[in-house]
Nucleic acid binder design. Structure first.
Lengths: 295, 295
DNA sequence: TAAAAATACTCCATAGGTATTTTAT
DNA sequence: ATAAAATACCTATGGAGTATTTTTA
């Protein structure tokens, strides 16, 4: 008899590749997890993992079971979510992931909208780069994420909220700052300042400017747009700036010039993504609507 | 924490509509089942069934849960089936449903083929009308069914094996028997002898002859083609006879005439159906191939 | 020899059984 | 009044913890 417990433990084992860490993740001791894995292997008539002391590999049977187990666990999570869908939309706890290039600019505008229209919503926020929040959404640690769409994950549904245009931030007085507008192709690789690896905005900036060769790029350890903007203000280069990041304080900065791109203006679509089949999808669409209202 | 046990018990409750019979079906006492249902209701935050003393109705939440639970249980069954897919195809136990208008004619030819090519297969056969084997296949009591396709069940996959033509069996000497061939439209409702309700061959005969109005039909309690043929031989009427039901003994019967239909000749497609996503689908396609070889 | 998983053994939570009560028709 | 589900109470299985041993790189 296969139990959900066995599947949960095995799923954690697959994701961590380590009995001890998997046990920690599901909140039991390592022997308890080992025993459940052994039970599952007995039920399926063969080993699921090739045990090495340091590293483990899934057997072919294990890989097949892992894929099916993930599907079953997602369906179970969705079933459990039915408990929260009682009454009106957007009430109760909601674990939401937001990427760093959206969170600080969206949240100040979004929170008042949610507080007014969905006062019984309890948001549990998590800020991390796209790859991280995507993994956590798949694993069930998050209910939904706010990110740049599309995420190209077949197991997600998405609701776009608004389009965020890109502008060019350049040092005041530089040639580009003097032009009324610039085309993306005019940005030189040596001038472009980028966020560190993992931020989707970095990849989008490269795509917009048509750059592929990573060798000629100047990447800083900067994890926030605010830091990058300080570098631009100091004349170190230019950067792609999402329109939503512009606030009055930024416009007042005499060291910076904000230049629009020529048509068609590049931009990113901001929206909400969640696991397909979730019974809370009405909630998530309502959230996307609230984001549209806030933007 | 939702368990597979709760889902299994609830699924049985949904299908039986009765706590006692559901408990019997899953092999536990009625209180044990009641407790698991209550646990599931607690986990989902609301009642799943409206308790009446004699009859029960699912709540809207209950209906939603029932649908999702059925999907999860099917996925779990398919996962458990992975245990049997080790080694070569068509080995080990296989629960197979066959409808009565196929079983007695196909099995004598099929069993030797299977014994020769798949000696390690252990067939567990069940003969019942289409609706019954379809339900049992959905419920996981059967692994596959041999029936007339398509079954039009979105949760099944199908593999056709061969086309079984229909012929007309008429009393020797009757006008239709004298004609070299007849068209389906010539069969009069008052002449056509039919199997009792539930046999798909009955519905197919009506469709072939273009009859809709059930009031003018003469239905007997006959559950087998052999019985119907005795009535035809006695001059009581005519019947639609699948070609595979014809054996030398039947051809030798001087009281019966077998008349072919005009082109396009009507017929039924015989094949194998199973639950979508089953890891044993290679087995089932091999079974369909064996049936083709036997026919 | 050091890190990681498997065993050994003890404890307790939970599923299950029987007997009985409650409930609704 | 009767059939059906819920409750009460006891038993036993199995999941989990700690301590320890085995394994392999």
């Amino acid at each position: 008899m296969i139990t959900t417990r066995q599947l949960r433990y095995f799923d954690a084992l697959v994701r961590t590749g380590h009995f001890g860490r998997a046990a920690e993740e599901v909140g039991v001791s390592q022997p308890a997890l080992s025993i459940q894995i052994r039970e599952l292997e007995a039920a399926l008539g063969g080993p699921l993992v090739d045990r090495g002391t340091t590293a483990h590999r899934l057997t072919p049977l294990g890989a097949e079971v892992a894929a099916r187990a993930a599907g079953i666990l997602t369906a179970l999570r969705n079933l459990e979510d039915l408990a929260f869908v009682r009454g009106e939309v957007l009430t109760g706890p909601l674990s939401l992931g937001i990427i760093p290039t959206i969170a600080p600019y969206l949240l100040p505008r979004l929170m008042p909208v949610l507080a007014e229209h969905h006062p019984r919503l309890r948001l549990l926020l998590r800020e991390a780069v796209t790859a991280t929040v995507v993994d956590e959404l798949k694993a069930g640690k998050l209910d939904a994420v706010v990110a740049s769409l599309p995420l190209n994950e077949p197991e997600f549904d998405e609701a776009p909220a608004f389009v965020d245009r890109f502008l060019l931030a350049a040092p005041a007085g530089s040639p580009m700052a003097e032009a009324g507008e610039v085309s993306p192709g005019e940005v030189r690789a040596g001038d472009l300042l980028l966020l560190e690896d993992g931020h989707c905005l970095r990849d989008q900036a490269l795509a917009v400017c048509g750059m592929i060769d990573p060798r000629r790029l100047r990447t800083f350890g900067a994890t926030s747009l605010a830091t990058i903007l300080q570098l631009v203000a100091a004349g170190q280069g230019v950067t792609l700036l999402p329109e939503m990041a512009i606030d009055p304080g930024l416009r007042a900065d005499r060291r910076l010039a904000l230049v629009e791109f020529t048509q068609p203006q590049p931009g990113r679509t901001i929206g909400v993504a969640w696991r397909k089949g979730s019974p809370r999808d009405a909630d998530f669409r309502a959230l996307a609507a609230a984001i549209t209202a806030a933007a």
